[in-house]
Design a protein around this nucleic acid. Sequence first.
DNA 1: AGCAGCGTCCGGCCGC
DNA 2: TGCGGCCGGACGCTG
Length: 290
Amino acid sequence: MPELPEVEGVVRSLAPVSAGRTILSVKISETVLSAKQIGKEAIVKGITSEDFISEMAGMKILALSRRSKYIYFHVERDEEPYLLVSHLGMTGAWFVVDTLDDIKEERFRRHVHVTFEMADGGLLVYSDIRRFGELRLVKAESDYPPLLEMAPEPFSEEALHHFLAMCETPKYARKPIKEVIMDGHVISGCGNIYATEALYTMKIHPNRSAGRISKERKIELFQTIVDVLQESIRAGGSSISDYRNINGEAGTMQERLKMYGKKFCPGCGTRTKSLKIAGRTSVYCPSCQH
DNA sequence: AGCAGCGTCCGGCCGC
DNA sequence: TGCGGCCGGACGCTG
């Protein structure tokens, strides 16, 4: 389940082996081709398969960056810049290999959906077991408004003020704090794992209304989220279920998690509880979190 | 106009 | 061993 730290790890490992290379041609899996043919938006979004294939041919990858949980491939063709935006969804993964057989893990090898054949011979491969991910080619972020509506990067200077201001709007003030911090319009890149961890560290019940937390505590909560995201980046991300970086390496952050997926509170030993908030499982300690 | 709530995209896994 | 139900980021649509 890639959240910001996992996506950061992908960008860091993918950039050095893909930047500077040129895409010769593109292959899309039969699964995706037929899904798109019957009108579904399958992985390659906002464009027909044929157009994606012809648009991507000849693209040179200039650089990679991360924005929230999105990977941005900065590309150009005939000196015209484009952005190839990649979201990993639940189970997306990138590989740089010579042949598909080099993808060692069978479950990824079985679900290869987009293969970019590079001019220098290698392959840049997108695999996605559940197909919740997406690839979207745009001229610029403004071509796809949701990209402009994302909260600032959590490590940027304006992120804290953005968070505090959003908490005070009528839309968010009465919502559960967990729903608020997981909303990409409020904080970028904080998914279920890190929201769960930060609320546990802060001893805040996930269902508490955002408006019923003092400004001081909200500032501390924000800093806790930033800290846990940075700790996870340093640890190479959390390898829960299907996340690997492009070298097939698993991160170690999952070993440092204190509440996500736990049956008992590591602090007091109380059996944890779980409730649904905004459709997502939210684990907490009923004794420590209020 | 803006928002809440639901549908959508799926394979894997769990429990019966 | 077979199978129905559940899970989940984030957008898009509906009412």
